[in-house]
Design a protein around this nucleic acid. Structure first.
Lengths: 240, 240
DNA sequence: CGTTTTCTTGACAGGGATCAACACTAGTGG
DNA sequence: CCACTAGTGTTGATCCCTGTCAAGAAAACG
């Protein structure tokens, strides 16, 4: 999932039964709360959500972002990534899946199985790249890098028109995601606007010069693994 | 792997054949280089290594740390985490594994299979926690948090004596791992020493007050998932 | 419309980076 | 055993990126 484009039409049909428990949540609500022992998976259908951790003193860090098509836990079955919460950044429509159900389907369907491994791979790669951003990129580089990544991700699910797309995150949310204060996000954003690289009005982002924005933020799309197919082998699939 | 303690003696025996291709590398050398298409897995037997990315302008970010017992790629088979390099932080002895080989063993041995999933889970949890550190913790909090984590990890593989253990990383390495400059690492280290929380001489670290160090760095060991067994179900293992 | 959230701006403080020496330590070879 | 060298640790001085506080403008919303 993540990039469902990789799934064939018949694959998608297999997933339909999963979409029985469709729910929705308003912006700011939690879909899953930290520490809850029994957790289900969340497949975001519409809106943006995130996984985050909150420190005792209130500091908050968003760990990963979910746009439509994204699955909350890579491979849909690491039930113990539960020391973080899942929150809605906008009003969200989502399907709540039972891990066992997804596992059963994956077992019976090679395409789905591969797609899940691919999703896991991309998720981890993005996580790596986020570490690089937080550790070594400046504020505006982080923003530029994020926008380039989002443009690519949203394009895969048909939510980007060229280099324009909806970016419904609040500046405070961006700060929590990129490890910056709200005020500094605002100023860095203006810097990017000032250079003519982007426009951001009414929650709509236009990247005027993707090449240049990617260059200044040291963005190398390789880590998203789009275009290249699946890696040769995946483990765990013992039935042929 | 990761925390091999979870493996029974018979499990360990199964792994022995993997240890045929044992190699070693001097400090600073790369075990695997970014971009190389065919990669094998690295199981660290002795010494410390890391996975890192280097930006075009020279900035370097260490993404994860490998101590003895650690496997370079979670589940041993995400061959495309290859846009990063693996480097030796100290002289390292390691086994080079073929992904297919490990997969075969995992398929035939439930214990190994579970251990690999557990390793993947812990790896991802640590990665999450690193994101929180880089995004929201101050310099000395990051150091304190790292030391607490290391103490727990090394203890699992018998490399910690109480709260004392070898910490062979250079201050420059620490900077690259925690997103700080070398100089600032030095100063933050002195701050921790000054508070009487730690001693660090001759590459040997003593944590004098783990409780306190954990408290000031907002360290919550839950994410390491030690003590609690494996989560109820793992995917991908379709043969019973 | 008023109310609340979000966005902007300014002034100021501070954590952390950078540059540049200098002190140690350890390994090298004579 | 003693220079000699290279890498690492330590310090000081200085700069600047980013955080904090606070208040006003602009949107979003019921």
């Amino acid at each position: 999932m993540g990039q469902g484009t990789r799934l064939s039409a018949s694959d998608e049909k297999v997933l339909e039964p999963l979409l029985q428990h469709v729910q929705s949540a308003e912006s700011g609500r939690d879909l899953e709360v930290e520490g809850l022992s029994s957790r289900s998976l969340v497949l975001v259908l519409d809106g943006w959500a995130c996984r985050y951790k909150q420190l005792e003193d209130g500091r908050r860090q968003i760990i990963s972002l979910f746009v439509p098509g994204d699955l909350s836990e890579p491979f849909g079955t690491l039930p113990s990534l539960k020391d973080s919460s899942i929150g809605a950044l906008t009003p969200v429509t989502y399907a709540r899946l039972q891990p066992e159900e997804l596992q059963r389907i994956a077992r019976e369907n090679a395409g789905i199985h591969q797609a899940l491994w691919w999703d896991l791979l991309v998720t981890m790669s993005m996580q790596d790249e986020r570490v690089v951003s937080l550790g070594r990129r400046s504020a505006s580089e982080r923003l530029g890098h994020l926008f380039c990544e989002l443009c690519a991700r949203l394009d895969l699910v048909g939510l980007a028109e060229g280099n324009t797309f909806d970016m419904p995150m609040t500046q405070a949310d961006l700060g929590d995601l990129l490890g910056l204060s709200t005020v500094h996000v605002n100023r860095s954003l203006q810097e990017l606007r000032g250079s003519g690289l982007i426009s951001l009005r009414n929650r709509r982002l236009i990247i005027h010069d993707v090449e240049e924005l990617g260059a200044i933020s040291l963005f190398d799309p390789a880590y998203l693994h789009v275009g290249n197919g699946l890696p040769a082998s995946q483990p765990g699939r013992s039935t042929s």
